[in-house]
Simulated assay, not measured.
Amino acid sequence: MNQNTPKMLNRRSFLAASVAMIGAPAIGQSVNTTQMEADVSSTVRRNISSFRSLTWQPYFSSLRNGAVLVDIDSRALHFWSADGKTYRLYPSSVPMSEGLTRRGRTSITRKVVGPSWSPTANMLKRNPDWPRYVPPGPDNPLGTHALYLGWKYYRIHGTHDKRKIGRKSSSGCIGLYNQHIAELFSLTKVGTQVLLI
């Protein structure tokens, strides 16, 4: 054994430890992944930057009436029931640009099964070929259910176009798969608090 041996071992130990530390977050993520996170399809995973469970306490002072948190950056919607026993995490579509994005606190003001849709004046300026009215059904961009928010024209709704989920693809609303909006619809009520961050 020459006098350089301890230095080589130290270098090797350092490199091995560095590689282990770099891999640790990925290992930790897979170990702590919830069933909801594990159920997200690989297509959605490619479209979102982050999809992880959160706790409600940093965002709400209480769970009175239940709580919905929409994280625009991670393209995820979180729901907590008023008693704290039910938590849901859904991939979502979010607005195409920051200019179309609304952030802040509001609440659910109305719930509609089979919503109709009419584009706003600004939407028609951008897309003059769009129809002025779309009745409920498979061609409706609001999908099967809509939760109307306290802000005019803003909704959390379903979509028949599954390619939109996990993407920046809406004109301001938050979109969910139809099966997810149906579940969220059943869990929420008028007055459920909503925060978009």
Score class of each variant (00 low, 15 high):
Arg52Phe: 02
Ala38Val: 05
Gly172Trp: 11
Asn65Gly: 01
Pro25Asp: 05
Pro138Gly: 05
Val31Ile: 15
Ser49Lys: 08
Asn178Pro: 06
Val70Ala: 03
Leu63Asn: 00
Tyr177Lys: 03
Ile197Met: 09
Arg45Asn: 07
Ser92Arg: 00
Ile27Arg: 05
Ile108Val: 13
Leu147Ile: 00
Arg102Gln: 12
Ile181Thr: 10
Ile156Val: 13
Thr109Met: 02
Val190Lys: 01
Asp39Arg: 13
Arg46Thr: 14
Ile174Val: 12
Asn178Gly: 05
Ser53Arg: 14
Leu100Met: 11
Tyr177Asn: 09
Gln179Met: 10
Ser74Gly: 10
Pro6Ile: 03
Asp83Ala: 03
Met8Val: 15
Lys85Trp: 02
Val94Arg: 04
Tyr148Ile: 06
Lys162Thr: 14
Ala82Asn: 00
Thr33Ser: 15
Ser18Asn: 06
Ile197Arg: 13
Ser92Cys: 08
Trp80Leu: 00
Tyr133Ser: 12
Arg163Gln: 15
Ser61Leu: 14
Leu124Val: 12
Lys125Cys: 06
Ser118Phe: 09
Pro25Ala: 05
Ser107Gln: 08
Asp39Gly: 11
Arg88Glu: 04
Tyr154Gly: 06
Ser116Glu: 09
Ser53Asn: 13
Gly84Val: 00
Ala82His: 00
His157Glu: 05
Ala24Tyr: 09
Ile197Asp: 06
Leu9Ala: 14
Thr43Ala: 12
Lys164Gly: 15
Met123Lys: 05
Tyr154Phe: 10
Leu187Gly: 04
Pro128Ala: 08
Arg105Lys: 12
Lys152Trp: 09
Ser93Ala: 14
Ala121Trp: 08
Ala82Ser: 06
Ser186Ala: 13
Asp139Phe: 09
Arg11Val: 13
Leu196Ser: 04
Val68Ile: 15
Tyr133Ala: 07
Gly104Pro: 06
Thr101Lys: 10
Trp151Gln: 07
Gly191Lys: 02
Glu98Ala: 12
Phe14Lys: 12
Arg46Tyr: 10
Ala76Met: 01
Ser41Lys: 05
Arg52Cys: 01
Arg126Met: 12
Arg167His: 04
Ser13Lys: 15
Arg88His: 07
Met8Cys: 13
Ser61Glu: 15
Tyr177Thr: 00
Arg45Lys: 13
Arg102Lys: 15
Val31Gln: 05
Phe51Asp: 01
Trp130Cys: 08
Pro91Tyr: 00
Arg11Asp: 14
Ser171Asp: 15
Gly28Ser: 07
Thr101Val: 03
Ser74His: 03
Ile181His: 11
Thr192Glu: 03
Arg52Thr: 04
Gly143Trp: 04
Gly137Pro: 11
Gln35Cys: 03
Asn2Glu: 09
Pro128Ser: 08
Tyr153Ser: 14
Ile48Asp: 01
Ser171Tyr: 10
Tyr87Gly: 02
Lys85Pro: 01
Thr192Cys: 02
Leu69Lys: 10
Ser49Phe: 08
Leu147Val: 01
Ser116Thr: 11
Lys111Ala: 02
Ala24Thr: 11
Leu147Asp: 01
Asp83Cys: 03
Ser61Tyr: 15
